[in-house]
Design a protein around this nucleic acid. Structure first.
Lengths: 140, 140
DNA sequence: CCAAATTTGTAGCCAAAGCTACATTTCGCT
DNA sequence: AGCGAAATGTAGCTTTGGCTACAAATTTGG
């Protein structure tokens, strides 16, 4: 057998775990956005914005409810719990930093928005901190 | 219905497609690495390095073969086709650029390696080009 | 205020990626 | 050469995130 570099495995594992969290983060952020815009998040709007069929959104919301991130009653809108709101704010803040960092190193606005959607879920807290420090230095 | 911002949907779709490509890219890159190190990639080593059970690696290799990226015969090593090697080189080059970019904005070496494993799959060609340009400017 | 349109829920299917358990083949060594 | 260990293959289960089709509830407009 080959000796296996634990750092490498760790990287793949982290990437897989991040991929698993990504869906949750996307839904929570979107519910928060819709609530801000319309006062509530409807399943149909959620599905439309995420580009999936509505039963897919229904299932995802069921999972969020299981995890204590959202609440809802049949035929009524979806709302975030306090914990859900907190997660949404974290995700939104990280998204802003990632977009700003991409812009700062020369990525065009529109591309930055698109790529950030995928990249943000893989940015660890330490990398996020480094991004923030860099942006602060640049701004001074 | 709410009018839906097409840019937003596009971002999520891209993120999902990137997630789907990520596995293929990881396997191809790893096969290439192992081939460079040992002359061939064995299923067991592949599985160990990616942190999965060996039947999982077997299935993934079967998919690569279906897609024309790899070839193998029972109880023999796995090898990349020309197309597979080309993909591996692309992936490896992108990985190097992403790590370099992270390092350049102040992310610690070890963290950069870990996060890059997840981030790289979401870096579009235009963002990659921006990264390269930035690194060139910095180096001058 | 009722019928039609819209929205939501539910059932049931598929594909992908993971796993364990077990069978088979190949390798390494005496 | 042959035997035990290691590697690979295969079967089959689970979970997850998608989908379509259809049923039920709610909203809306005439």
């Amino acid at each position: 057998m080959t000796e296996t570099d634990p750092t490498q495995i760790k990287g793949f594992d982290r990437a897989r775990q991040a991929a698993a969290r990504a869906l949750t983060e996307d839904y929570v952020e979107m519910i928060s956005d819709l609530a801000a815009e319309f006062g509530e998040a409807r399943i149909t709007d959620l599905a439309a914005r995420l580009g999936v069929a509505h039963p897919t959104a229904t299932k995802a919301v069921a999972r969020l409810k299981r995890e204590g991130l959202a609440i809802s009653r049949p035929y009524r809108g979806v709302f975030l719990t306090e914990e859900g709101e907190a997660l949404a704010e974290t995700v939104r803040a990280r998204h802003r930093v990632v977009v700003a960092l991409l812009r700062a190193v020369g990525v065009p606005e529109e591309v930055a928005e698109l790529d950030a959607e995928g990249i943000e879920h893989h940015v660890s807290s330490r990398t996020l901190a480094a991004f923030e420090a860099y942006l602060n230095r640049k701004t001074d």
